[in-house]
């Protein structure tokens, strides 16, 4: 049976009425119209659906909405302000770090969770933080350059 949940999404309180086992991904995409997290595998293997929950990168396809509670959910739509992209988003544009771009938002969220926690993360740490994110177009090097560029910007 459907239940009502109050979620903390991008700093706002959002009420949704869904069945408890509904993956968070579908609540974000279809109830809250936040389409930036995307379905890739439904098994937490590819990272296209990554969001940040209380500071940690989480695969939202794999988390039932009932397990989230009142923890703070941040999605790709919540990291920029109108007209001002987050440094990671700007760096992806500057480095042209996308081909199809389907994986990009999940990767940005994984990178943000890392840089929030460890602003001086080295190359190996960045690569390790993306262990659960797959890119099929082969844009890896541009993505890594973009993350390092954003890191410099964030540290200024």
């Amino acid at each position: 049976m459907a239940e009502t949940f109050t979620l903390n999404v991008n700093g706002a309180s959002r009420r949704v009425t869904v069945e408890p086992e509904t993956p968070l991904l579908y609540v974000l995409r279809n109830d809250l119209s936040l389409k930036g997290a995307r379905f890739g595998c439904g098994l937490g293997q590819c990272g296209a659906c990554t969001v940040i929950i209380d500071g940690a990168a989480v695969q939202s396809c794999d988390v039932p909405v009932s397990a989230v509670g009142d923890r703070a959910i941040t999605t790709i739509e919540g990291i920029s302000t109108p007209g001002k992209p987050h440094p990671l988003q700007q760096a992806f544009v500057d480095e042209q770090a996308a081909q199809c771009g389907y994986c990009a938002t999940g990767i940005i969220m994984s990178a943000k969770a890392l840089l929030d926690r460890d602003p001086a993360a080295d190359e190996a740490a960045i690569r390790a933080a993306l262990a659960k994110n797959l890119c099929r177009c082969g844009t890896h090097n541009r993505i890594l350059r973009a993350i390092r560029r954003a890191q410099r910007e964030l540290q200024r």
Binding site: L34, G36, I76, S80, Q89, F92, V93, A98, T105, I108
Partner: peptide
């Protein structure tokens, strides 16, 4: 790319 990395419907 700007809209895609912003998470806009694409």
């Amino acid at each position: 790319i700007p809209a895609k990395v912003a998470g806009a419907p694409a």
